[in-house]
Amino acid sequence: MTDTEPSDGMSVQVDRLSVYAVVTVEGSIDFGTHERLGERLTEALALTEVALIMDMAAVSFCDSAGLRVFVRAIRETRMRGMSLVVTGLHGRVANVFAMTGLQQEMFVQPDVDSAVSWLETGQSRLAFKPEDTG
């Protein structure tokens, strides 16, 4: 399920991978796009009872409105007893997540394959350190 609206600078794709829901986001998460991302996350949560993986590798910007979407996602996955794994954090976006403490509230993996491996075995495929995000 792809939701692409190039005029607002963000696209969101929701897929199912095994028992996991994967949300791939591209572009900017901001005041103009955060509500649509929240709606797509709600759809993704209906696809899994295990874990939500958010691929942020193609996200170039996230403002406070976008961060609120992640706070709600953290709260919702915890209430459901699910894991929230964020992948691909880099650059400014990784710095914002680190500075606000959000990165400590979710599981972070370098990519979707590593997230799946970690969810299934408890071990990451790649050696990953928080400083690798910048």
Rank of each mutant, 00 (worst) to 15 (best):
A115K: 10
S124F: 11
T87G: 03
A21K: 04
V59I: 11
V59T: 08
T33L: 15
A65F: 08
L67S: 10
R125G: 09
L41K: 08
E26P: 02
S28F: 01
S117R: 10
R36T: 15
I74Y: 06
E43H: 02
E131Q: 05
D63W: 03
T133G: 00
M56A: 07
I53Q: 06
T48S: 01
F107N: 11
Q123R: 13
S7R: 15
G91Q: 10
V112C: 05
R36Y: 02
R92G: 07
G27Q: 04
F31G: 08
D111F: 01
C62M: 06
V96Q: 10
V85L: 01
V14K: 00
S83F: 06
D132W: 08
A21R: 11
I74E: 08
F107C: 09
E49S: 07
H90V: 01
Q103V: 15
D55I: 06
G101W: 07
I74M: 06
S18V: 14
L126N: 12
M10F: 07
T87P: 02
F97Q: 05
E43C: 03
D15E: 14
V19N: 13
S11G: 09
G32V: 07
R78T: 00
V59C: 10
G38E: 06
L84D: 08
F128V: 05
S18C: 10
P110H: 10
L37F: 07
V14G: 02
S11L: 03
E76W: 06
E43S: 04
T4M: 11
S60T: 14
L37K: 06
L41P: 04
G66A: 05
F31C: 00
D132P: 02
D8M: 14
S7Q: 13
L119G: 03
D132F: 09
L126G: 05
H34Q: 15
P130C: 02
Q109K: 08
D55W: 00
S11V: 04
G134H: 13
Q109P: 00
P6N: 09
S117K: 09
V59N: 08
T33G: 14
V108F: 03
R40L: 14
Y20Q: 06
M10Q: 15
E120F: 02
G38A: 13
V96F: 10
L45R: 15
Y20L: 04
S60A: 08
L84K: 13
F128T: 05
D111M: 06
F31M: 09
D132L: 11
R68V: 04
G88E: 11
R16D: 00
V93L: 09
S64Q: 04
C62K: 04
V96E: 07
T77V: 07
D111I: 08
Q109S: 11
L41R: 04
A57R: 13
